[in-house]
Design a protein around this nucleic acid. Structure first.
Length: 524
RNA sequence: GGUGCUAUCGUCUAGUGGCCUAGGACAACGGCCUCUCACGCCGUAAACCCCGGUUCGACUCCGGGUAGCACUACCA
C-alpha cells in the first residue's frame, strides 16, 4: 500500500516552528517511502480563523523546500488531487453524512446544554466530565426523547452532537515511537463532534473522516494529541473503519530554551529569536512576528537544525542535506522526550551553510543590504571582500559590520583601539609610512607571491611586506605598534582581515588618502 | 485533582547487557596561530534522576519512587 501522510495545520496564525518540524518529519517519511505528502487545512474553528494564515503556511513550506504532493500548495492554492476539497470548511456536506451515520448507529446523540450551563456545571461539580456517568442528567436527546429533540432542532435551537463513549473499556493505541499506550475509556468524555452554531465538525470528527477518506496510512503529529488518540481509535471503530485505521506516531514536543514547557510565541519575543519560519503580519490582532527568513537564515540551515531536534541517526554526523535526511530518517530513531529549543545551535548551523556558499552567491544575497546603506559596489569587489570576512559571520546581514570600512572610509575611531594601539609616536610613524608607500609602484601595490615561513608552511607573502617590514626593522620600530596604528587609520578600529588584504582592495590612492585623513581626524 | 508520556554533560544527542576510564556537536573556559578582531586548530571542565531487583556483569532489562511535560473546551 502506498504511504500517504498529511500535515494538517489550523489557519489560526503563523505556522509555529514546532509545526514546521512536524511537517518536515511527515515530508521525510513520505519521500523515503515513495509516498504522498498532503496538506489539509483544518479550519473548523470559525472563531479562530486568521486571514492570511493559510497563505503563510504554504509559503513557509515552499521556502523550506517541504514539497506538497496533494492538497493545498503553492501551485494549487485551492488544492490538487482527487480526494478534495482539502479545506475542511468546504467539506460540510461530507461531515453531515458521517455525523448522521453515527447518530443512526447509536454512537452519537444530540445535546442542547449551552456553553454557559456547562461552565456552571463545571464550577458546581469538581472534575465534571460529560460521560456515561453524567450524560443522563444533562439536556440531550437521551433524556429529552425523540419528539422533544426533533422539536428543538426544528425550532432552530443550537445543539451539538456528542460521541457516546462506552465506559470501562481499555483502549490500546499502538504508537510507532512509544509502543502500546493503553487508556481506559472512563477518562474520556463524550466529545463534541459537531456544532450546529457554525455548521462545522470539531477536530476529532473531521480528522477521522478526512484521514479515512483521504486514505492516510500514517498519522505523524505532536505529542499533545496522544491523550486523545484513544478517542480517535474509538471513532474509527464506531465508523467500522478499524481495519484501515492509519498508524500513529506522536512526536516529542519542542520545549522552551530556559525553564520548562512548550515553546511558545512569547518565548521568541522574550528571548529574542524567531519561532516562525517567515515574518507574519497578523491583521486580526495587529501583531508582527519575526521570521527565520527575514533574520537571515538559509532554509537548509533551518531544516538541518529542526531535523536534529528530536531525531538523530547513530553516529556523529551533524550536517544533513534534505536528500540525506530523506534517506536516513526513521521514526524509530525519533526521541521520546521533548527537546529544548537551542537557538545557539541554530546559529551555528547557519554559519556552516554560509561557509558552504560561494563568494559570488553571497555577494548577490548581500547586495540588498549594501544598497540599504547606500553602497553600490562592483560585484567582483563585493565577492572578494566577502571572501575575506565570511568566516566570521553567521548571517548575511552581519557581513555589513565586517565589511563596511571597505566601502566607507572611517570618520570616527574606536576609543578602545586608540587607547591601546595609538601611541605618541604613531603620527610620526604614519607620516613616514606615507612616504614609504608612496614609493611603491602602482603595478606592485597588490602583488603577492607564494613562499614558506620558517616552519615550512606554505604562505602568501605580499610585496608590501617586503617594502614595509625592512623599513620597520631599519628604524627599530615595533611591528605591532606601526601596523596597528596603520590599521586604525584604514579601518577605524583594531579589527578586520589581514592588513595587506585590505590595502589590496582599497588601492594605493585610497590607502594613502585614508592615512592622511586619519592623521587629521584622530585627536588624542 | 485525574490520565498519559518522558528521564545520559548547561543544551541537542550517541549508547539496544560486557566494546563505557560513557562518544560527538553547540555553548563555556584555556592555549596555539597572529599587526588587530575573528576564523581555524589543540586542549580543559561538564552527565547516566533516586532506591531496589534480575544478572557473573547494568546507562542499557524489571519494579517502585521522584521530577518534568502534555492532555483534561461547542481549540486545534
Amino acid at each position: 500500500m502506498k504511504v500517504r501522510v498529511r500535515f494538517a495545520p489550523s489557519p489560526t496564525g503563523a505556522l509555529h516552528i514546532g509545526g514546521v518540524r512536524t511537517a518536515l518529519y511527515n515530508y521525510l517519511f513520505a519521500r523515503q517511502h515513495g509516498g504522498d505528502m498532503l496538506l489539509r487545512i483544518e479550519d473548523t474553528d470559525s472563531t479562530r480563523f486568521v486571514p492570511g494564515a493559510e497563505k503563510y503556511i504554504i509559503e513557509a513550506l515552499d521556502w523550506l523546500g517541504i514539497g506538497i504532493d496533494e492538497g493545498i500548495c503553492i501551485d494549487a492554492p485551492n488544492g490538487k488531487g482527487d480526494h478534495g476539497p482539502y479545506r475542511q470548511s468546504e467539506r460540510r456536506d461530507i461531515y453531515h453524512q458521517y455525523v448522521k451515520q453515527l447518530l443512526d448507529s447509536g454512537h452519537a446523540y444530540y445535546a442542547f446544554d449551552t456553553p454557559e450551563e456547562l461552565e456552571a456545571k463545571r464550577k458546581e461539580v469538581p472534575n465534571f466530565q460529560y460521560d456515561a456517568r453524567t450524560r443522563m442528567s444533562m439536556t440531550n436527546s437521551l433524556t429529552l426523547g425523540e419528539d422533544e429533540t426533533q422539536r428543538r432542532i426544528a425550532d432552530g435551537e443550537k445543539y451539538v452532537v456528542r460521541f457516546m463513549v462506552e465506559p470501562d473499556e481499555d483502549v490500546t493505541v499502538h504508537d510507532l515511537i512509544r509502543g502500546d499506550v493503553v487508556i481506559n475509556s472512563n477518562i474520556l468524555d463524550d466529545k463534541v463532534l459537531y456544532k450546529s452554531a457554525d455548521d462545522l465538525p470539531t477536530y476529532h470528527l473531521a480528522n477521522i473522516v478526512d484521514d479515512h477518506l483521504m486514505e492516510i496510512t500514517h498519522v505523524i503529529r505532536g505529542e499533545e494529541w496522544l491523550p486523545s488518540a484513544p478517542l480517535h481509535v474509538l471513532l474509527y471503530r464506531a465508523f467500522g473503519w478499524a481495519d484501515t485505521m492509519p498508524q500513529f506516531a506522536h512526536l516529542p514536543l519542542l520545549l522552551k530554551p530556559d525553564g520548562n514547557g512548550k515553546l511558545s510565541k512569547r518565548d521568541g519575543d522574550r528571548l529574542g529569536f524567531p519561532v516562525f519560519p517567515l515574518e507574519f503580519h497578523n491583521d486580526k490582532d495587529g501583531t508582527v512576528s519575526s521570521g527565520y527568513r527575514e533574520s537571515g537564515y538559509f532554509p537548509e540551515a533551518v531544516i538541518n537544525f529542526l531535523a536534529l531536534l528530536g531525531w538523530h541517526n547513530t553516529g556523529d554526523q551533524e550536517m544533513y542535506s534534505m536528500d540525506e535526511l530523506i534517506q536516513q530518517f526513521s521514526l524509530d530513531r525519533v526521541s521520546k522526550s521533548g527537546a529544548k529549543f537551542d537557538y545557539e545551535k541554530g546559529k551555528w548551523f547557519n554559519h556552516q551553510y554560509l561557509q558552504l556558499k560561494s563568494d559570488e552567491q553571497l555577494a548577490d544575497l548581500f547586495a540588498p543590504v549594501l544598497a540599504q546603506h547606500g553602497v553600490h559596489a562592483d560585484k567582483e569587489v563585493v565577492a572578494k571582500v566577502i571572501g575575506l570576512t565570511k568566516d566570521r559571520v553567521n548571517f548575511v546581514p552581519e557581513l555589513w559590520e565586517q565589511t563596511n570600512f571597505f566601502f566607507v572610509a572611517p570618520t570616527v575611531f574606536d576609543e578602545k583601539s586608540l587607547a591601546k594601539r595609538w601611541k605618541d609616536d604613531s603620527p610620526r610613524h604614519m607620516q613616514e609610512l606615507i612616504a614609504v608607500l608612496e614609493g611603491v609602484n602602482e603595478a606592485d601595490w597588490s602583488a603577492s607571491y607564494p613562499t614558506t615561513d620558517d616552519k615550512g608552511n606554505h604562505i602568501t607573502r605580499w610585496h608590501l611586506d617586503d617594502v614595509v617590514m625592512p623599513w620597520i626593522a631599519e628604524h627599530e620600530y615595533g611591528v605591532g605598534i606601526v601596523m596597528n596604528a596603520f590599521r586604525i587609520c584604514l579601518v577605524g578600529a583594531a579589527r578586520g582581515p589581514h592588513i595587506w588584504a585590505i590595502t589590496d582592495i582599497l588601492g594605493k590612492e585610497e590607502t594613502l588618502r585614508r592615512v592622511r585623513a586619519a592623521l587629521g581626524l584622530i585627536v588624542k
